[in-house]
Amino acid sequence: MISLDHFEKSCRDFVSNQDVQLQGWKFCVVDGGGVYLNVVKRCDTRVEVNVKECEELEFEEHDPSAVAVSNTSVIEFDFHIAYHKIFKVPFLLLRATVDGIQLGQQDIIQHLSEGKDDWLPKELNHYTFLTQGEHPVLGTIYFYLHPCQTAELITTVTDRDFERIDYVAVWLSFFGRAVGLHVPMSSISNKKI
């Protein structure tokens, strides 16, 4: 378990690493609302754009100067790391969208476990813990990995004072794997563990 202050400091440390920045991680502060980490990852695999019909409103617009729009798009995963006030640990929230249209739980699990992109994990088991809930900072609904066994797991890595380790990086090295987030080695300094 870590304190909110330590979580915040640990997040700042994490994003100060250049390799972490290159992965696209951002540290976000919401006025009066708290902090979280955010990274967006795209799958290269094409998916059909899912369109609900609304036939009566369709019309033709002749425009030879326009290129035909592609009918496929890709899934975009939006990952957040926020602080769980009850379990006092970081937890991972996510959303998957195709051009803004959200995927449901089953689709997310399917793409995480069967997607062809290199970065995706190939094994599934942690995902079954995926559930929906409110983002503690943004207040909107995200899927998240249930944080109930986090504190226990981190204790298996180090029994030392948590204030001294790169908690977020160490934590992510465990929980990120489940969703294909890999932690750059440089963000974890060996001597501290």
């Binding site: 754009v49 369109v51 609900k52 609304c54 036939e55 409103l57 369709e58 019309f59 033709e60 617009e61 002749h62 425009d63 326009a66 035909a68 729009v69 009918n71 803004g100 249209i101 959200q102 449901g104």
Partner: peptide, 19 residues
Amino acid sequence: VGWEKTLNKSRPKIADMGQ
């Protein structure tokens, strides 16, 4: 011109956020 086309037709999109 410029109404957005979806699947090559000018038509509205529907975002179902019910879930």
